[in-house]
Design a protein around this nucleic acid. Structure first.
Lengths: 162, 162
DNA sequence: TTTCATGCAAAGGTTTTGCATACGC
DNA sequence: GCGTATGCAAAACCTTTGCATGAAA
């Protein structure tokens, strides 16, 4: 079976299909974007670091290890492009900088739990929201394409420490 | 009955109790913060503009009308203080700037629907999420204090226009 | 060869900070 | 009067842009 498989964090709800580097590159190619080593290096960063929430600066630092001549502007331009192509999505964790994450079309229900004490970000996948979305569409006529859900609170470790 | 009452936007689910300026000022006073005209002016901005999502610059512009000598740094410092005191909460609408909103403890279930076409932000209150939160706490031990939920899609107007 | 992508540096925008002054209590 | 809050200006960040060069197709 083709594709990289990752396990959903937090709980054992099965396996989620992920795009490979080749899939994304052929998408770029079809749209007449060039496959440069910089773009590949940035893509690899996300594919290797799945379920992280990287800022542009963090991507820059990671990519610089393998590709020291890359410029920060290229990182920003590539991230913008990948968001445009829906390969990545922007998220915000409240620290005044945009963060990026692989856009998992297959795991649409992807939420963050942010600990107010230690700052740890956990993920949680759940499809219960589907009911809420249906009710919302019925009542308001708003057609939902995507969502972002953040829970703020205290993680089990911090709760235990008090 | 004391308190300012506002109607929940989007649908007619009743009236929600809101904090008055006096309530918040007495909270400041109790914590030994000084009641300055600048702080009052900023608070009034949020109380008068309920259900808006103001950036620091927007607050600055509005307050300047009544209080032209105010500085932008004061606005930032006051907003930080009010977030600290849980009078306001930070939200992010994806436009690279922090926005602030009255923290409605009583209407905990407060979500945003952001139109990908026209950028309109509607609000939606719903308590269905309670079930999801309970399931999440049971499974992960994460104690939820607050949440932010964003739906991205197309509002009824934009959907009709296509 | 043509066109697009890159790197650098500068500029733009938002948010924070240092410090002397002003003001609430 | 004491101690905090303010205004101003500068600095610190994050992000975008212009332009000459370099590399992909």
């Amino acid at each position: 079976m083709p594709g990289l498989y990752i396990q959903a964090p937090g709980e054992n709800i099965g396996w989620i299909m992920k795009k490979t580097l080749e899939d994304i590159c052929s998408k770029l190619q079809q749209l007449n974007y060039k496959i440069t080593p910089q773009r590949q290096a940035i893509l690899k960063t996300f594919i290797n670091k799945i379920s992280e929430h990287l800022s542009a600066e963090e991507v820059y630092t990671i990519v610089k290890e393998d590709y020291p001549e890359i410029g920060l502007a290229t990182v920003y331009r590539t991230l913008d492009l990948l968001v445009e192509l829906e390969v990545l999505m922007k998220i915000n964790l409240g620290d005044n900088r945009t963060r990026y994450e692989l856009n998992q079309h297959d795991s649409h229900y992807h939420h963050h739990m942010i600990c107010l004490n230690c700052g740890r970000v956990q993920e949680f996948d759940h499809d219960l929201l589907e009911t809420l979305e249906k009710a919302l569409t019925q009542k308001t006529g708003f057609q939902i394409i995507d969502h972002q859900l953040k829970f703020f609170g205290y993680c089990s470790d911090c709760k235990a420490a008090t």
